[in-house]
Nucleic acid binder design. Structure first.
Lengths: 141, 141
DNA sequence: ATTACTGCAAAGCATTTGCAGACTG
DNA sequence: CAGTCTGCAAATGCTTTGCAGTAAT
């Protein structure tokens, strides 16, 4: 289940804040926004403090390949998720914006056929959109 | 090649601005940002005017299913493309942000397997990212 | 001690909104 | 003419940045 706990890069200080942010991401099975992370950190309070630190930490983690930043259609905030859980793709409800994980990846069996264009593929991002169960039921309103 | 020219929805006025914005999108084979559209409209000048109208028109077009709004990873601006060209997917250079179109769609032959989760899939969005040819050559810098 | 990090406040930037005047049908 | 649109300017909301004090190594 747990992979190696992950090593702090040298020169990077292991602060309380960073460890807490990591812990929050680790406990969540869904990608989180900077704001929702900071809310968790502040114990539910809406204190705006921390937010810039959260962003800076997320940038750092992303640079260090610890997390992945994803930006979802019609959602104004970026979401972040531990790479441990990465290479998952998501289905997003166009109504309530809830996020469901896809079990497998269409790209596993697909050749994008870009070699003639000299494009070196590093990765990919896939999103489905549609209606989740509860919003589907209310579509007529 | 050309599908039906598309009908203006009733109640929606056919103004000079809207027609020009449509024309710009029609001439471009790549998705464009609101800003780049407005630059084209202003004949290359950086006039900030128009921008809100461009956004409003793009929102309208999107609502009327004339265009599709896409938001690309690590790119802060939304991009818009005529649906006539839609259901294409893109490879984006992580360095210079140039956009290359993919010829075919991995989802054509893929079952996301979400029916058990009661998610009604309306559509999808796929992006590859990596290095385009010219950036690949400069990677060492 | 050094060097990196945090909190705070202020700035940036894409996008949205309010409003009065201008234009379409 | 009536009802929509446009331009302008100001507001919004997420994210970034500068700086002086604080904490990690």
């Amino acid at each position: 289940m747990s992979e190696e706990p992950f090593v702090w890069p040298k020169g990077v200080k292991k602060t309380k804040q960073r460890m807490e942010i990591f812990a929050v991401l680790e406990k969540s099975d869904k990608p989180m926004s900077a704001f929702s992370i900071s809310k968790k950190l502040n114990g539910g309070t809406d204190k705006n403090t921390w937010l810039s630190t959260v962003y800076r930490t997320l940038d750092l983690f992303e640079k260090e390949k610890i997390i992945t930043k994803i930006s979802i259609m019609n959602q104004d905030m970026a979401l972040y998720t531990l790479n441990r859980f990465a290479h998952h793709h998501y289905a997003v409800c166009v109504d309530c914006h809830s996020v469901i994980e896809m079990e497998n990846c269409p790209m596993e069996t697909f050749d994008p056929n870009l070699t003639d264009k000299n494009f070196r593929v590093l990765g990919h991002k896939i999103e489905l959109y549609g209606y989740c169960n509860s919003c589907e039921l209310q579509v007529e309103k």
